[in-house]
């Protein structure tokens, strides 16, 4: 498991809607059509200044190395926390901040 990658601008204009892209290396083994043990992420959650922004529930049809693009409206300087949670409870966390500029 490498460190998840998050592409997000360092600064934004007040009121701007910014694009955020994420990628985590993960095999997402469903064990439906192989003898490998199941190894799946359960949920991806993003908060902005502590408030829910975006989330995704993973089911079997989610591809290996899950990647997402989504958006956030920046009204003020914002602290983002990105958390990937495995079905076994393990979490992977990335933090980023966007300043007004």
């Amino acid at each position: 498991m490498s460190t998840p990658r998050v592409l997000i601008p360092d600064t934004a204009a007040a009121g701007e809607v910014i694009q955020i892209r994420t990628l985590i290396d993960h095999p997402m083994i469903t064990a439906v059509s192989s003898d490998l043990p199941r190894d799946m992420l359960d949920r991806f959650e993003v908060t902005m200044n502590g408030e829910p922004l975006f989330a995704y529930d993973f089911y079997n049809g989610s591809a290996e190395n899950p990647t997402f693009t989504f958006f956030a409206r920046i009204d003020a300087a914002a602290d983002f926390v990105f958390v990937w949670t495995h079905e076994d409870g393990e979490t992977f966390t990335v933090e980023r901040s966007v300043a007004i500029g």
């Binding site: 975006f54 989330a55 995704y56 529930d57 049809g61 409206r73």
Partner: peptide, 12 residues
């Protein structure tokens, strides 16, 4: 089921 996104007004 493939997946479910959850969005908020903050998504913009």
């Amino acid at each position: 089921e493939i997946g479910t996104f959850h969005l908020t007004p903050r998504s913009g």
